[in-house]
Simulated assay, not measured.
Amino acid sequence: MSLDTIRTERAPAPVGAYPHARRVGDLLFLSGVGPRLPGSGQIPGNLTGPDGTLAAYDIDAQTRQVFANVRAVLEASGARWEDLVDVTVFLTDMARDFSVYNRIWAEHFPDVDTAPCRTTLGITALPTPIAIELKCVAALRRA
Rank of each mutant, 00 (worst) to 15 (best):
M1R: 04
L3Q: 00
T5F: 07
T5Q: 10
T5Y: 06
R7G: 00
E9T: 06
R10E: 14
A11K: 04
P12L: 01
A13H: 10
V15W: 15
V15L: 15
A17W: 02
P19T: 07
P19M: 14
H20W: 13
A21K: 09
A21G: 13
R23I: 15
G25R: 03
D26P: 02
D26S: 05
L28N: 06
L28R: 03
F29I: 15
S31A: 15
S31M: 06
G32A: 15
G34L: 02
G34D: 15
P35V: 04
R36W: 04
R36I: 03
L37Q: 14
L37P: 01
L37A: 10
P38M: 04
G39T: 13
G39P: 08
S40Q: 12
S40W: 12
G41N: 10
I43Q: 11
P44I: 03
N46A: 15
L47F: 13
T48R: 13
P50T: 04
D51A: 05
G52T: 03
L54M: 00
A56V: 01
A56P: 01
D58S: 13
I59G: 01
A61R: 09
T63I: 06
T63A: 00
R64D: 04
R64N: 06
F67D: 05
F67Y: 14
A68Q: 15
A68Y: 08
A68H: 15
N69A: 09
V70E: 10
V73G: 13
L74N: 10
L74T: 07
E75N: 09
A76M: 04
S77R: 01
G78S: 10
A79H: 05
A79D: 06
L84I: 10
L84R: 03
V85H: 08
D86N: 08
V87A: 08
T92M: 03
T92I: 14
T92C: 05
D93K: 04
M94E: 11
A95M: 07
A95C: 06
R96F: 06
F98S: 12
S99P: 05
Y101E: 10
N102C: 15
R103D: 12
W105T: 12
A106E: 11
E107H: 08
H108M: 11
F109M: 04
P110N: 09
P110I: 13
P110Q: 05
D111A: 09
A115F: 09
A115G: 11
P116T: 11
P116A: 12
C117L: 15
T119R: 14
T119D: 14
T120I: 15
T120M: 09
I123E: 11
I123T: 10
A125H: 01
L126A: 00
P127L: 00
I132K: 01
I132T: 02
I132E: 00
K135R: 12
V137T: 14
A138C: 07
A138V: 09
A139Y: 07
A139V: 03
R141E: 12
R142L: 12
A143H: 10
A143C: 08
